[in-house]
């Protein structure tokens, strides 16, 4: 079976899940010509239908230059995902500076694997420089006592 047909099945399942979600909405006793479930139900049914439609007519097989046919570097995608997840987890704990520098460096480095040591050094330097620029702009014009900038990241949470 072609991949797109599996996708169609996933869509049908998602539609069913959406309809289940719509069932969880409380219909209040307030007067309302059309209640809060009406549109979600319609959308849920539509999603199921679109899945069935796609399953029935998956279209021509993907052309060799289409994204469906592209061979993907799943490791790299996984690393990128992990990197962002780590960033979000670290954001409040380690603070803005460490987390963002890590993200900038990791984001760059991930595109160059295996990186030459020169590229690695450059990425690292670039990330630090890039981030320092931002940090500088955040705190440059702030009186020492007011730690808030664009992103309202509290400096006490920042490990310098």
């Amino acid at each position: 079976m072609r991949a797109i047909r599996w996708v169609a099945l996933v869509i049908v399942l998602f539609g069913a899940f959406y309809l289940w979600g719509a069932l969880q909405i409380r219909e209040s006793t307030t007067y309302a010509a059309v209640g809060p479930r009406f549109m979600p139900n319609a959308i849920g049914i539509g999603i199921v239908l679109s899945g069935v439609w796609l399953f029935a007519f998956p279209g021509a097989p993907p052309a060799p230059d289409s994204p469906e046919a592209a061979s993907l570097d799943w490791l790299s995608i996984g690393l990128m995902l992990g990197l962002v997840a780590v960033y979000i987890a670290l954001f409040r704990v380690a603070g803005y500076v460490l987390a963002t520098t890590l993200l900038l460096w990791g984001g760059r480095a991930n595109f160059r694997r295996p990186p030459s040591s020169r590229a690695r050094r450059r990425d690292c330097g670039g990330a630090v420089g890039d981030n320092l620029l931002r940090l500088f702009a955040i705190i440059a014009h702030q009186p020492a006592a007011s730690p808030v900038g664009l992103l309202r990241v509290r400096l006490e949470g920042v490990v310098l």
Binding site: I11, Y18, G21, I25, T30, G35, P36, P40, I43, S50
Partner: peptide
């Protein structure tokens, strides 16, 4: 599907007319 997905994402949150939480 793409259109419905967007419409569906738009349903998330509090319903303005009845104050009920959705999805």
């Amino acid at each position: 599907f793409a259109t419905l997905l967007g419409l569906g994402l738009g349903m998330v949150g509090i319903d303005l007319q009845t104050g009920q939480a959705r999805f």
